[in-house]
Amino acid sequence: MSLLSLFLGEKKKSASVAKERLQIILAHERSGRGVAQPDYLPALQRELLAVISKYVKIDSSDLKMHFERQDNLEVLEVKIELPEPGK
């Protein structure tokens, strides 16, 4: 390594620069798709409601599902409001 390249830095090859730019674009596009929900969520919600209804009387508004992407994880949050015992 020469003293001049130490101070000025080495020029990157155009292929590596293009690769880095493509990785940034792909990461940006992937993060933008975080709001889209999978196609199976409505069917999953209906099936969960049917199974729970076998044991406890609940309304469809008592079952709430929330889907989000966090980094490399997909998180599905399911909230079920059960009636108080004896009602």
Rank of each mutant, 00 (worst) to 15 (best):
A50R: 11
G32D: 07
G34S: 12
I58S: 02
A15K: 08
L73Q: 10
A50S: 10
K54N: 15
K87V: 11
K13F: 06
F67Q: 07
E77H: 10
A43G: 10
P85I: 03
K19W: 15
K54I: 08
F67L: 01
L82Y: 13
M1Q: 02
E77Q: 15
E81Y: 05
D59S: 14
G34D: 11
L4T: 06
K13S: 12
H28T: 13
I24W: 02
P38D: 03
A15G: 04
N72D: 14
H66F: 11
E84T: 10
E81G: 00
I24G: 01
E29N: 04
F7D: 03
E74I: 10
L41K: 00
S61E: 13
E20R: 15
L49E: 02
V78D: 09
A43H: 09
S60G: 03
E29Y: 04
V78L: 12
D39I: 08
V51F: 02
D71I: 03
L63K: 04
K19S: 15
E77W: 07
L44D: 01
R30T: 06
A50D: 12
V51R: 09
F67D: 00
A36P: 00
K64Q: 09
V35N: 01
G86S: 02
V35A: 06
L82R: 05
L8G: 00
K87T: 13
E81T: 11
I58L: 10
K57Q: 14
L26W: 01
L63R: 02
P85N: 03
G86A: 03
E20Y: 06
P38V: 07
S60K: 10
L44R: 01
E20V: 05
L63T: 07
L22D: 13
A43L: 13
L44A: 10
K79Q: 04
E10F: 07
H28S: 14
S2C: 00
L4H: 05
D39A: 12
